[in-house]
Protein backbone atom coordinates (compact mmCIF):
# COMPACT_ATOMS: atom_id res chain seq x y z
CA UNK A 1 0.00 0.00 0.00
CA UNK A 2 1.67 3.21 -1.18
CA UNK A 3 0.76 6.78 -0.24
CA UNK A 4 -0.07 7.35 -3.91
CA UNK A 5 -2.66 4.55 -3.75
CA UNK A 6 -4.14 5.95 -0.54
CA UNK A 7 -4.32 9.40 -2.10
CA UNK A 8 -6.08 7.95 -5.17
CA UNK A 9 -8.61 6.30 -2.83
CA UNK A 10 -9.20 9.52 -0.88
CA UNK A 11 -9.57 11.54 -4.08
CA UNK A 12 -12.00 9.00 -5.59
CA UNK A 13 -14.16 9.25 -2.47
CA UNK A 14 -14.02 13.05 -2.33
CA UNK A 15 -14.85 13.62 -5.98
CA UNK A 16 -17.61 10.99 -6.09
CA UNK A 17 -19.03 12.40 -2.84
CA UNK A 18 -19.05 15.86 -4.41
CA UNK A 19 -20.89 14.61 -7.49
CA UNK A 20 -23.43 12.71 -5.35
CA UNK A 21 -24.04 15.84 -3.28
CA UNK A 22 -25.02 17.72 -6.44
CA UNK A 23 -28.25 15.66 -6.48
CA UNK A 24 -29.40 17.02 -3.14
CA UNK A 25 -32.78 18.63 -3.73
CA UNK A 26 -32.76 17.64 -7.42
CA UNK A 27 -32.99 13.83 -7.58
CA UNK A 28 -36.05 12.42 -9.40
CA UNK A 29 -37.74 11.26 -6.18
CA UNK A 30 -37.33 11.93 -2.50
CA UNK A 31 -35.89 8.52 -1.56
CA UNK A 32 -33.18 8.86 -4.19
CA UNK A 33 -32.51 12.37 -2.96
CA UNK A 34 -32.04 11.21 0.63
CA UNK A 35 -29.94 8.25 -0.49
CA UNK A 36 -27.59 10.24 -2.72
CA UNK A 37 -27.16 12.86 -0.02
CA UNK A 38 -26.27 10.15 2.52
CA UNK A 39 -23.95 8.45 0.03
CA UNK A 40 -22.25 11.82 -0.47
CA UNK A 41 -21.78 12.27 3.28
CA UNK A 42 -20.40 8.75 3.65
CA UNK A 43 -17.92 9.06 0.78
CA UNK A 44 -16.72 12.47 1.91
CA UNK A 45 -16.29 11.24 5.48
CA UNK A 46 -14.22 8.32 4.19
CA UNK A 47 -12.14 10.78 2.18
CA UNK A 48 -11.63 12.96 5.27
CA UNK A 49 -10.45 9.97 7.34
CA UNK A 50 -7.96 8.97 4.62
CA UNK A 51 -6.66 12.55 4.18
CA UNK A 52 -6.17 12.76 7.95
CA UNK A 53 -4.15 9.57 7.80
CA UNK A 54 -1.96 10.91 4.98
CA UNK A 55 -1.58 14.40 6.42
CA UNK A 56 -2.48 14.46 10.14
CA UNK A 57 -1.30 18.08 10.58
CA UNK A 58 -3.43 19.59 7.82
CA UNK A 59 -5.86 17.28 6.03
CA UNK A 60 -7.85 20.23 4.63
CA UNK A 61 -4.81 21.50 2.74
CA UNK A 62 -4.37 18.08 1.19
CA UNK A 63 -8.06 17.81 0.30
CA UNK A 64 -8.56 21.33 -1.07
CA UNK A 65 -5.15 22.93 -1.49
CA UNK A 66 -3.81 21.16 -4.56
CA UNK A 67 -3.69 22.27 -8.17
CA UNK A 68 -6.16 20.37 -10.41
CA UNK A 69 -3.36 18.29 -11.95
CA UNK A 70 -2.30 16.94 -8.53
CA UNK A 71 -5.60 15.10 -7.89
CA UNK A 72 -5.44 11.33 -8.40
CA UNK A 73 -9.08 10.30 -8.82
CA UNK A 74 -10.23 8.20 -11.76
CA UNK A 75 -12.17 9.75 -14.68
CA UNK A 76 -15.36 7.84 -13.75
CA UNK A 77 -15.98 9.87 -10.61
CA UNK A 78 -15.50 13.35 -12.09
CA UNK A 79 -18.21 13.10 -14.76
CA UNK A 80 -20.82 15.78 -14.10
CA UNK A 81 -24.25 16.56 -15.50
CA UNK A 82 -27.81 15.62 -14.73
CA UNK A 83 -27.81 12.02 -15.96
CA UNK A 84 -29.49 10.14 -13.12
CA UNK A 85 -29.14 6.74 -14.82
CA UNK A 86 -25.41 7.36 -15.12
CA UNK A 87 -25.13 8.33 -11.45
CA UNK A 88 -26.91 5.15 -10.34
CA UNK A 89 -24.78 2.96 -12.60
CA UNK A 90 -21.55 4.71 -11.64
CA UNK A 91 -22.27 4.28 -7.93
CA UNK A 92 -22.87 0.54 -8.38
CA UNK A 93 -19.75 -0.07 -10.51
CA UNK A 94 -17.68 2.03 -8.13
CA UNK A 95 -18.97 0.46 -4.91
CA UNK A 96 -18.15 -3.06 -6.10
CA UNK A 97 -14.65 -1.81 -6.95
CA UNK A 98 -14.45 -0.15 -3.55
CA UNK A 99 -15.34 -3.38 -1.76
CA UNK A 100 -12.11 -4.84 -3.14
CA UNK A 101 -10.15 -1.74 -2.21
CA UNK A 102 -11.40 -1.94 1.39
CA UNK A 103 -10.24 -5.57 1.52
CA UNK A 104 -6.83 -4.34 0.39
CA UNK A 105 -6.83 -1.79 3.25
CA UNK A 106 -7.88 -4.46 5.76
CA UNK A 107 -4.83 -6.46 4.72
CA UNK A 108 -2.48 -3.53 5.32
CA UNK A 109 -0.08 -3.49 8.27
CA UNK A 110 -1.08 0.05 9.28
CA UNK A 111 -3.39 -0.43 12.31
CA UNK A 112 -5.09 2.95 11.78
CA UNK A 113 -5.84 2.23 8.14
CA UNK A 114 -7.27 -1.16 9.12
CA UNK A 115 -9.52 0.46 11.73
CA UNK A 116 -10.80 3.03 9.23
CA UNK A 117 -11.33 0.27 6.65
CA UNK A 118 -13.34 -1.73 9.15
CA UNK A 119 -15.70 1.21 9.67
CA UNK A 120 -15.89 1.82 5.90
CA UNK A 121 -16.70 -1.83 5.25
CA UNK A 122 -19.70 -1.74 7.59
CA UNK A 123 -21.08 1.44 6.02
CA UNK A 124 -20.42 0.33 2.44
CA UNK A 125 -22.56 -2.79 2.86
CA UNK A 126 -25.58 -0.47 2.82
CA UNK A 127 -24.30 1.27 -0.30
CA UNK A 128 -24.17 -2.00 -2.22
CA UNK A 129 -27.62 -3.11 -1.01
CA UNK A 130 -29.01 0.23 -2.17
CA UNK A 131 -27.09 0.17 -5.47
CA UNK A 132 -28.32 -3.32 -6.31
CA UNK A 133 -31.93 -2.44 -5.48
CA UNK A 134 -31.71 0.60 -7.77
CA UNK A 135 -30.04 -1.35 -10.59
CA UNK A 136 -32.67 -4.12 -10.35
CA UNK A 137 -35.53 -1.61 -10.31
CA UNK A 138 -34.30 0.32 -13.36
CA UNK A 139 -32.98 -2.76 -15.19
CA UNK A 140 -32.55 -2.70 -18.97
CA UNK A 141 -33.36 1.03 -19.13
CA UNK A 142 -29.84 1.61 -17.78
CA UNK A 143 -28.13 0.19 -20.90
CA UNK A 144 -27.07 3.61 -22.31
CA UNK A 145 -25.66 4.50 -18.89
CA UNK A 146 -23.75 1.20 -18.71
CA UNK A 147 -22.33 1.81 -22.20
CA UNK A 148 -21.15 5.24 -21.11
CA UNK A 149 -19.84 4.29 -17.65
CA UNK A 150 -18.14 1.01 -18.57
CA UNK A 151 -14.87 2.25 -20.17
CA UNK A 152 -14.56 4.85 -17.43
CA UNK A 153 -15.11 2.20 -14.75
CA UNK A 154 -12.32 0.08 -16.26
CA UNK A 155 -10.08 3.10 -15.68
CA UNK A 156 -10.59 2.81 -11.91
CA UNK A 157 -7.97 0.08 -11.67
CA UNK A 158 -5.01 2.11 -12.98
CA UNK A 159 -2.21 2.00 -10.42
CA UNK A 160 -4.33 0.47 -7.65
CA UNK A 161 -2.95 -3.07 -7.74
CA UNK A 162 -6.56 -4.33 -7.65
CA UNK A 163 -7.92 -7.03 -9.93
CA UNK A 164 -10.20 -6.05 -12.81
CA UNK A 165 -10.90 -9.75 -13.38
CA UNK A 166 -12.25 -10.20 -9.82
CA UNK A 167 -14.48 -7.15 -10.27
CA UNK A 168 -15.73 -8.36 -13.67
CA UNK A 169 -16.56 -11.73 -12.12
CA UNK A 170 -19.06 -9.94 -9.88
CA UNK A 171 -20.47 -7.15 -12.04
CA UNK A 172 -20.81 -8.87 -15.43
CA UNK A 173 -23.23 -11.63 -14.27
CA UNK A 174 -25.12 -9.20 -12.03
CA UNK A 175 -25.57 -6.74 -14.88
CA UNK A 176 -26.76 -9.62 -17.08
CA UNK A 177 -29.33 -10.58 -14.43
CA UNK A 178 -30.77 -7.05 -14.72
CA UNK A 179 -30.90 -7.31 -18.53
CA UNK A 180 -27.74 -5.29 -19.08
CA UNK A 181 -24.91 -6.16 -21.46
CA UNK A 182 -21.33 -5.04 -21.13
CA UNK A 183 -19.82 -3.28 -24.16
CA UNK A 184 -16.43 -4.08 -25.69
CA UNK A 185 -14.28 -1.19 -24.53
CA UNK A 186 -10.79 -0.09 -23.65
CA UNK A 187 -10.25 1.43 -20.21
CA UNK A 188 -10.15 5.22 -20.02
CA UNK A 189 -7.11 5.97 -17.89
CA UNK A 190 -6.61 9.36 -16.32
CA UNK A 191 -5.68 9.40 -12.66
CA UNK A 192 -2.95 11.89 -13.58
CA UNK A 193 -4.74 14.01 -16.18
CA UNK A 194 -8.30 15.18 -15.89
CA UNK A 195 -11.04 16.25 -18.25
CA UNK A 196 -12.92 19.54 -18.55
CA UNK A 197 -15.64 18.33 -16.13
CA UNK A 198 -13.05 18.47 -13.37
CA UNK A 199 -12.17 22.14 -13.95
CA UNK A 200 -15.54 23.44 -12.78
CA UNK A 201 -15.77 20.83 -10.00
CA UNK A 202 -12.34 21.91 -8.71
CA UNK A 203 -13.38 25.59 -8.77
CA UNK A 204 -16.45 24.73 -6.74
CA UNK A 205 -14.81 22.27 -4.34
CA UNK A 206 -11.75 24.36 -3.48
CA UNK A 207 -13.33 27.84 -3.72
CA UNK A 208 -13.72 28.39 0.02
CA UNK A 209 -10.29 27.01 0.81
CA UNK A 210 -8.62 29.21 -1.81
CA UNK A 211 -10.47 32.27 -0.51
CA UNK A 212 -9.42 31.67 3.08
CA UNK A 213 -7.17 28.67 3.85
CA UNK A 214 -7.57 29.21 7.60
CA UNK A 215 -11.31 28.35 7.46
CA UNK A 216 -12.25 24.95 8.80
CA UNK A 217 -13.41 22.85 5.86
Amino acid sequence: MTDEQLLAAADDELILGHRDSEWTGLAPHVEADVALSSLAQDEMAHAAALYALLSPADPDALACGRAPGAYRHAPLVEVGGRDFAFSVTRQYLYDIFEEQRIQQFLGSDLPELKAIAERMAREERYHRMHDRAMMAALGARLQPAVDRAWPLALGLFEGTGLSEADWRAIVVPELASWGLAVPEAQPVPGRTRHGSDFDSLWEDLTGLFRTDPSRHW
Binding site: E31, V34, S38, E123
Partner: peptide, 13 residues
Protein backbone atom coordinates in the same frame (compact mmCIF):
# COMPACT_ATOMS: atom_id res chain seq x y z
CA UNK B 1 -37.49 -1.35 4.09
CA UNK B 2 -38.51 1.82 2.26
CA UNK B 3 -35.08 3.40 2.04
CA UNK B 4 -31.74 2.20 3.36
CA UNK B 5 -30.84 5.83 3.93
CA UNK B 6 -32.63 8.25 6.22
CA UNK B 7 -32.47 11.59 8.03
CA UNK B 8 -29.02 10.84 9.44
CA UNK B 9 -26.25 8.55 8.23
CA UNK B 10 -26.97 5.93 10.91
CA UNK B 11 -30.68 5.44 10.16
CA UNK B 12 -32.85 3.75 7.49
CA UNK B 13 -36.56 4.24 6.74
Amino acid sequence: AENLFGPTRCRAI
